[in-house]
């Protein structure tokens, strides 16, 4: 029981855990703070979300979030403030500017360009005359009809070989 004497808590001084009104009229709860904190990342640790991070800096940052919410700042304003304080590391994603845009655009661009290239390529290829080499699996299946219903035949074919 001795260790229970150790206090281990995310203390939120100066805010209305007891529900006292703030300038905006609504009390700021721990829940509100955590919701905002969950959209950001710890500046010092690696990949740890602010709401679950328990190092002293993160606790203080959560206090700051509470204070800012209490004076009516929006989550977006708070994020901007933290980026100014600690750099883009708090965003948990590359900022959408400058060279960082590479990460946002390159995968989509690759998908689009290769996708279109592939489409054109396939279109050209499929419009070429069809040649079926004898002895390939496909040529063989052509020869095996088991049912008159073309659909059933197809299903049969598919279940037969694949």
């Amino acid at each position: 029981m001795l260790l229970l004497a150790v206090t281990f808590t995310v203390k939120q001084p100066g805010l209305a855990a007891d529900g006292s009104p703030t300038p905006t009229g609504t009390p700021v709860t721990q829940q509100d703070i955590m919701r905002v904190a969950a959209t950001m990342y710890c500046p010092l640790c690696v990949g740890e979300r602010l709401d679950v991070c328990e190092i002293p800096l993160c606790r203080e940052m959560k206090v700051v979030i509470g204070e800012k919410l209490a004076v009516g700042e929006t989550p977006a304003q708070i994020r901007t403030f933290f980026v100014k304080q600690y750099g883009p590391v708090v965003l948990g994603e590359p900022p959408k500017q400058g060279l960082h845009l590479i990460t946002w655009l390159l995968p989509a661009a690759a998908l689009l360009l290769i996708g279109i290239w592939l489409f054109l390529r396939l279109q050209r290829e499929t419009s070429a005359p069809v040649t079926i080499t004898a002895g390939t699996p496909d040529a063989q299946t052509k020869a095996t009809g088991v049912s008159d219903d073309p659909y059933l035949q197809q299903v049969e074919k598919e279940t037969e070989k694949w």
């Binding site: 990342y41 690696v46 883009p88 965003l91 994603e93 590359p94």
Partner: peptide, 9 residues
């Protein structure tokens, strides 16, 4: 720029 690239990205 020190970055964290995680779930948001």
């Amino acid at each position: 720029d020190k970055l964290t690239v995680s779930a948001p990205f």
